[in-house]
Design a protein around this nucleic acid. Structure first.
Lengths: 169, 169
DNA sequence: CATCAATATTTGAAATGTCAAAGGAATAGC
DNA sequence: GCTATTCCTTTGACATTTCAAATATTGATG
């Protein structure tokens, strides 16, 4: 339902001055849209590769750090809790996609690294993933895509400034 | 519209002509921003009300349908699978926030409805929730918020048109 | 060197998430 | 009226999610 006035503040808003609820509407729409895309990506990852989205996400971080990452660092980058990373890496290791190592200079640490098999699989999945996303957004004007990217960056910045816990990008 | 730069397609993009990856970048940014807000909302729901986000979401749907909703309908509206709705409603019922009924005219169906207690609690949580979101987005220009809402609507529409499964809003 | 604090990961309980398969109940066709 | 199909929900297996508590290791302090 591509609306005609995609870019204007609608009358309703101006007349009623209902600015207070705009943020809520935006949040709900972001959430439902993200859920929609996630579910589609998840379904395809599962059907075509037998992988899950969190696994894909974790492997993406390892893919660009060929030397591996400590679990705590993985936790920050994937926005997944420590305890969760443990289980994710465990399953990926069981599938032979990742290896865990403990460096000798600090034996508290566990470093996860992609295996050759994991590296190959991720490269294949990443290419597919990118094309799925492009297809899903095929109806959009590229300029809109770029503009959205910027503006959502502003949203992220504002949110990061107003968190109660100590947590930010 | 209040910015120098936020709205322009950046040089990098123009020069490299890397339009193919713009959709991917947008998706990743939407995902991380949504995760950030979700985590904050979750933390506050938990700390202040002992509730979870999915519970809040489910109660929101029941709040506006005073006569209740069938579980299948709840599943569609919350974008949660059937099996999951069963467990959610079970727990909410155990807490006295929701009741389940089976209408006589179709005994396959289960209808969930907010109790008075659930109705009161949700009203309180919803007000708090709205103010949390407004606070998190406090740095944004209201016009940007409205524009984002529209444009993300376009994203959602495009995605809905390109799903592999039979699933849309 | 013994201890205390800080760091890094694991573990455990409870909730949410998916899918596929199974259950009961209503409807269609014969 | 009987059967087959369809509809709605539940169940079961497994993965992910959070938080809090426990564990292990390092570094700093006395």
């Amino acid at each position: 339902m591509a609306e005609a006035d995609v870019d204007t503040v609608d009358l309703e808003t101006i007349v009623q001055g209902a600015h207070e609820k705009q943020e809520l509407r935006l949040w709900l729409r972001m959430l439902s849209t993200t859920k929609l895309i996630s579910q589609e990506v998840r379904r395809r990852l599962r059907n075509e590769f037998g992988a899950t989205l969190p696994q894909f996400d974790l492997m993406a971080q390892l893919y660009r750090e060929h030397s591996g990452l400590r679990l705590g660092e993985l936790s920050k980058r994937t926005m997944v809790t420590n305890g969760n990373v443990t289980g994710l890496v465990e399953r990926l290791e069981a599938d032979g996609l990742v290896v865990r190592e403990t460096p000798d200079d600090d034996r508290r640490v566990t470093v996860a690294k992609l295996t050759a098999k994991g590296d190959d699989l991720f490269a294949t999945m990443a290419a597919a993933h990118e094309s799925w996303v492009r297809d899903m957004m095929a109806d959009l004007d590229p300029a809109d895509v770029a503009a959205l990217w910027s503006r959502i960056g502003a949203v992220k910045a504002s949110v990061s400034n107003h968190l109660s816990g100590a947590d930010f990008d």
